[in-house]
């Protein structure tokens, strides 16, 4: 994992999460802004996947369990997709809140992935 990219991703996922929860609680249905923020979170996860595959070739190896790392990464990739699918099926303010929950969930998982990559034995 590349450190600055991880922090960027963590920041984007957290902001997207807070934004969607705030707008959802304010009564907004899923719109281009909240769906776009979720799509951005997903895009960064896909880039992270490519990065994680390429990084060991450049000598940037994971110190922890790769199996655990990829389980987190694949799970994280599924989360925004599931939330967005929900938002498309049910167009209510609560779907926007759920987009936010997904964003915050991804943020936690990204941080955990960083721990697995860098801190041996956690």
């Amino acid at each position: 994992m590349i450190e600055w990219f991880m922090w960027l991703q963590l920041g984007v996922a957290t902001l997207a999460g807070l934004l969607c929860i705030a707008l959802g609680l304010a009564g907004r249905k899923p719109n281009d802004l909240t769906m776009g923020a979720t799509a951005l979170v997903e895009l960064l996860l896909i880039m992270q996947l490519v990065g994680a595959i390429v990084a060991p070739l450049t000598g940037n190896n994971a110190t922890g369990s790769l199996l655990e790392f990829y389980t987190y990464l694949i799970s994280a990739i599924l989360v925004p997709v599931a939330a967005a699918a929900w938002a498309l099926i049910e167009r209510s303010r609560w779907s926007t809140v759920i987009l936010g929950v997904a964003g915050l969930g991804v943020a936690v998982m990204v941080y955990r992935m960083w721990q697995i990559w860098t801190v041996q034995g956690l």
Binding site: S75, V79, W86, S92, R93, W94, V101, A102, G105
Partner: peptide
Amino acid sequence: GIGRVLIAVYGLLALA
């Protein structure tokens, strides 16, 4: 409505 969010969090925990 909040029940929906609860279900989403349950789904997330199930995944984790």
